[in-house]
C-alpha cells in the first residue's frame, strides 16, 4: 500500500514491468501518481456541485434547514458509519496483499464489497421513502412541501438527488472494481499489490466524498 523504497519481488514470480517501463518500481510510481491525478480530477467533479450547494444554502438558509429536516438522519448516519467501516476493511485487504495472505485478502475484499452493497440498499430504501413522501422533484412527479419553503426545498432536493445519485454511481463502480480484485485474488493472480492499492485509493475517495455529502445534506437541519 505505501510508497516503498523497494518493492520486494516475490520468489518465483516472473516480475516484469510493462514494456514502456524500465522497472517495476517506475511502473508502480506511475500507477499511483496516475490514480492520484484522477482523484484530484474527481474532487473537482464533485466540487462543482458542492460549490453550487454552498451558494444556495447561504442564500436560502431557512428553506434548506427545513428541507434537510425531512431526510432520515438515522439511515444517513448508519450509511456513513458503513462507508467508513468499508474503508477500514479495504485498508485491511490492502495490508494483506503484500504479505501474500490470500485468505485475508479475499475475506476483506468480500466484506468491502458487501458493505458497499448494503450502503446502496439502504440508500435505495431512503429513496423509496422520499419518493412516496413526494419529496423527489424529478420526472415531473408531484412535489409536496409546506409553504413558505416549497420552491427552495425543491432546490434542496434537486441537490440531494444529484449528489447522492452521482455518489451512488461512483460507489457502484467501486463495488465492481473491488469484485474484479476479488476475482483476481480467488484465481490466485500474483502481484496484485499495485492493483489493490489503486482500487483502494478509489474506494477511499468515494468514502471521502460521502464524508462531505453527509453533513452538507443531512446535518443542515437542527434536530434538537
Amino acid at each position: 500500500m505505501a510508497y516503498r523504497n523497494a518493492i520486494p519481488t516475490p520468489p518465483g514470480a516472473e516480475a516484469k514491468p510493462a514494456p514502456q517501463f524500465d522497472s517495476l518500481r517506475q511502473q508502480y510510481e506511475a500507477d499511483t501518481l496516475g490514480m492520484w491525478i484522477f482523484l484530484a480530477s474527481e474532487i473537482l467533479f464533485f466540487g462543482g456541485l458542492f460549490m453550487a450547494y454552498v451558494i444556495y444554502r447561504a442564500a436560502y438558509p431557512e428553506a434548506f434547514e427545513a428541507a434537510s429536516g425531512r431526510l432520515d438522519l438515522l439511515l444517513g448516519g448508519i450509511n456513513t458509519a458503513i462507508l467508513l467501516t468499508s474503508s477500514l476493511t479495504m485498508t485491511l485487504a490492502d495490508d494483506a496483499v503484500l504479505p501474500r495472505n490470500r485468505k485475508a485478502l479475499i475475506g476483506w475484499l468480500a466484506v468491502t464489497a458487501l458493505l458497499g452493497t448494503v450502503f446502496l440498499v439502504i440508500k435505495g430504501v431512503e429513496y423509496s421513502v422520499e419518493f412516496a413522501a413526494h419529496l423527489a422533484p424529478i420526472f415531473g412527479r408531484p412535489f409536496d412541501f409546506p409553504e413558505p419553503h416549497t420552491e427552495q426545498a425543491r432546490l434542496f432536493f434537486s441537490f440531494y438527488f444529484a449528489l447522492t445519485g452521482l455518489h451512488a454511481l461512483h460507489l457502484f463502480i467501486g463495488i465492481v472494481v473491488v469484485l474484479i480484485m476479488l476475482a483476481l485474488a480467488i484465481r490466485g493472480v500474483p502481484r496484485l499489490e499495485a492493483k489493490v492499492t489503486i482500487a483502494g485509493l478509489y474506494w477511499h475517495l468515494v468514502d471521502l466524498i460521502w464524508v462531505f455529502v453527509f453533513p452538507l445534506l443531512y446535518l443542515a437541519a437542527h434536530h434538537g
Binding site: A52, I55, Y56, Y60, P137, Q152, R154, L155, F159, F161
Partner: peptide, 16 residues
C-alpha cells in the same frame, strides 16, 4: 430528470 439546479423558478441562479 427535471432536476433543476439553475432553474430561476425555484430560486436557482443562472449566473452560477
Amino acid at each position: 430528470f427535471g432536476i433543476g439546479i439553475f432553474d430561476p423558478k425555484v430560486g436557482g441562479d443562472p449566473v452560477l
